[in-house]
Amino acid sequence: MFKRFDPSHDTSTSTQVKASIQRSLKSQILDRHKSITEDTLEVLLPKKSPLVQYKVGSHMMLYCKRSEHEDKSPTDEPVLFQHRDGPIMPTLKLLHRYPTLKFTQVTVDKGAIPFLLGGANVMCPGLTNPGGEMPADGSEQDEHGFDKPGLKKGDGVVIYAEGKEFAIAVGTMTMSSLEVRGKNKGIAIELMHYLGDGLYQTDEI
């Protein structure tokens, strides 16, 4: 999605995010990523300093933190993005900076790394091979008594790599983790943002 992202061409209007919208952003993140607490999110996105929203293309929103400078116009540092009504996900630079900030995460095995760095989607075996990791299924049951999958289709995940410290990519699940384990074939995660893409290379807008 951000492979050829170039802020000077691809971003159009920028607007300040309303406080109410910022609240709903936060509640969405809290809802989707269980291990993030309200307090940590409040530190990350304080109420006082509103976010700035950029339109990227037609369906992508990029949320940035604005920092003021004395001698030049303010610069915006990308922190979150959202495609259509999809999950709201953080940028990799943000993830690297806050190691304790745990979004829902998966781990891929070593063999997948070079492909991910080229922007390829994650295939099922990358998650199921030894070295790969996904949240366990069946920790909760739905109202009919069936196991709930650890990850649902459409969930946003942060992708880590086996033996590496830093997150390598961010993507959305194209099937549930139950299916990934069952089928073990085809695309498991559609990649949105990875190390080395245009968004990663953008420090500020």
């Binding site: 607490t37 307090d39 940590t40 530190v43 990350l44 630079k93 690297h96 900076r97 806050y98 190691p99 304790t100 900030l101 790394i113 760095l117 590496k164 410290e165 830093f166 390598i168 190390l195 080395g196 990663y200 290379q201």
Partner: peptide, 30 residues
Amino acid sequence: TVAIPEDNDSNLLPRRSVVYCGACGMPPEY
């Protein structure tokens, strides 16, 4: 050891400065 802890703006969310390769811009492990 990879990242040097920076001044924390909160105990809840410690911040660190990350070393990026000066040649390719990636984290050095990549």
